[in-house]
Write a protein that binds this DNA or RNA. Sequence first.
DNA 1: ATCGATGCAAAGTTTTTGCAATGCT
DNA 2: AGCATTGCAAAAACTTTGCATCGAT
Lengths: 135, 135
Amino acid sequence: MAQTWAEELRSRGFRVTPQRRLILDAVRDLDHATPDAIREHTGQGIDLSTIYRTLDALERSGLVTHTHLGQGTAYHLAEHADHLHLVCRGCGAVSDIPLSVASSMVAELRDSHAFDADARHLTVFGRCRECSTDQ
Amino acid sequence: MAQTWAEELRSRGFRVTPQRRLILDAVRDLDHATPDAIREHTGQGIDLSTIYRTLDALERSGLVTHTHLGQGTAYHLAEHADHLHLVCRGCGAVSDIPLSVASSMVAELRDSHAFDADARHLTVFGRCRECSTDQ
DNA sequence: ATCGATGCAAAGTTTTTGCAATGCT
DNA sequence: AGCATTGCAAAAACTTTGCATCGAT
């Protein structure tokens, strides 16, 4: 059970390597994992090109997902991608909120625009309370 | 009236130059203007660094806005930014739809999360009808 | 005459690619 | 053994910066 992910990878024809373990661990540990943060978290041993290629493989296997935050691409475990992102343009803070806030929009997109939206990748820009009052 | 934008720029301390005219025209003409597309549209004469600096100035003057689409940054006239973007992960198509589909989400973010969302910058990833059926 | 804006060249960032060596299966 | 994966090096793509010159005000 603890290594379903390995089976998942193998069943898709991907191999399970130490690097992939470490990268997946890093994605699990970090909050919004960027390729570079993953490299640091794993302790410099893994080449960035491997990280990019691995994230691509993990994503195509359905184990992780990514979003475009303000500056850069952030990865999550797919099973933890149960939220969407708010990015404050004032202070840069990123917060996670339940997907449910988007549900009516998702429903309307499906019904009126025949578009199957993936709210897990949604990033909403705006201003948090502190930064709204500051102007 | 036709050149309120020039007054707008000047009132903010920016100067009005031929390049800025051309770049603003390009943003108006192109659908989702990227810096490089703007350079092509204006006919190669303007340096890319000027385009980046100008877009920054135009944005800080409130004349244009930008969004992060799948690959790259797209600019719009602020007055035409009355829509949000759907990006299909299957075929890459970008469509514009009315901001109203996001209004209940925006209201909930304001009421329950004290977050002032800017739906004009919203990009929703997912699949269009054709690409959903294709799998 | 000022001081911001431009073009050019160079550098910074982030992501991708080629290829020989390595190691999972 | 076979072939995907890795590391390294190089390249590609995108964006920013420094600086001398030019030009809007």
